[in-house]
Nucleic acid binder design. Sequence first.
RNA 1: UGGGGCGUGGUCCAAUCGGUAGGACACCUCACUGUUAAUGAGGAUGGUGUUGGUUCGAGUCCAACCGCCCCAGCCA
Length: 441
Amino acid sequence: MTQENQTTAAVVAIERAGDHVGQTVAIRGWLYNLRESGKLLFPIFRDGTGVLQGVVSLKEHPDAFAALKGLPQESSVAVTGKIQAELRAPGGCEIHVSAIEVVQRVADSDPYPIQLKEHGVDFLLDKRHLWIRTPRQASILRIRADAIRAARNFMDDQGYTLTDAPIFTPAACEGTTTLFEVNYIDDQKAYLTQSGQLYVEATAAALGKVYTFGPTFRAEKSKTRRHLTEFWMLEPEAAYLHLEDMIELGEGLVSAMVQSVVKSRKRELATLGRDVSKLENIKPPFPRITYDEAVQVLQKAGNPTKWGDDFGGDEETLISKNFDKPVVIHRYPAAMKAFYMEADPKNPNLALSFDMIAPEGGGEIIGGGERQSSYETLVKRLREHNLPEQAFQWYLDLRRYGSVPHAGFGLGLERTVAWICGTEHIREVIPFPRMLYRVYP
RNA sequence: UGGGGCGUGGUCCAAUCGGUAGGACACCUCACUGUUAAUGAGGAUGGUGUUGGUUCGAGUCCAACCGCCCCAGCCA
């Protein structure tokens, strides 16, 4: 190996290393692990796109051997070597290291805290900024990114325009108990948004078919594996469209996200040990049942749910177990839904609403429906719910000036990604989870 | 917020009936040319969440508090 070869070797991403078998290339990344076996070293490098085993021979490359021997985990390195197919290496190929530059050596006195062994949840969450380096966490984040890209592409292709909703809002969308209050300028109070929905109703009246995608905040005292206080939501809204149109859009959106991940994140799903066969058949149409039918299904299964009860996690799981796709439950009792829901003209006790429940215990990933378009009814509902009418004047304007039937929904990104990844807890699918009693790091 | 569970070296765990707090990993040294969370031998460091109580004696029993986990409610 000449000096010239080492300095001119092309930098390649580890995920593409298999395309460079027989070539001398450069890898820039970190030392993930190091196994020693006498005069051979077996480092494992990671570069953010994957991990690759290296092999360094004392006899052939004494300088590289000396530089690597004893190098602490997570030291940053630039590696030059020849990619070779190797059945004994994890992943099928490895790099025969000829030169290595240590960019930063981790201090021996202060080793990298995350081992390849098991750790507890609390410890890992405290080290979340480092935990995301592990192959499992990095794979989840890459899947999240792909799901977002697929969702945005799908919405754009369907003719929906992205219209961002504000994060600071003057009042609640759904109730006042779950709001984060912030001090705005000059002693004004503002709140972090719980949902972009009210705003996307306004932009729908301006642009027709729109959606918003961004973070939302709920100060719910919920400590479950499905809750974050800060989570991302994609909320479409369309003028002149109805409940069935939104169910169809939701089916298409979820399918597009799943199929994109299945197609372009095979490697990451394999790292997670995800059973891909359960994702491959996620294509429209999804099973649809009414709330009435869902209650019957539950009662037949021995569940004590009565008509008028909302469904909890147990009930959702029980219903979704009957299907291998997400199931849509529609036309809930109006009394249990938000003030802005439109009533079913065939039965005013029912709201034109729907939820989508992910299979495999994934829980509710979509909630939505048709919005109340009557000015008078909306005012009445605001009063019934004790909401501050003054703060909603702008929203009532949407019913004063050219009110039309319209519908939309909210898709919870993290719940959807958690289901796609097959992770037990939602906290793993966002880079820095914000939960009840955790805002660090 | 309610119910249940758990707090032991940096990390993950063990400690019988209340009786000398220990192991593995991590770290250091040595051996090993195909390791797969490498292995083998040796070494140093370091701990019972807090406060009180019962007892000859408390990691272990009791009380309160703190923290975490799981479930429920609410929701995406």
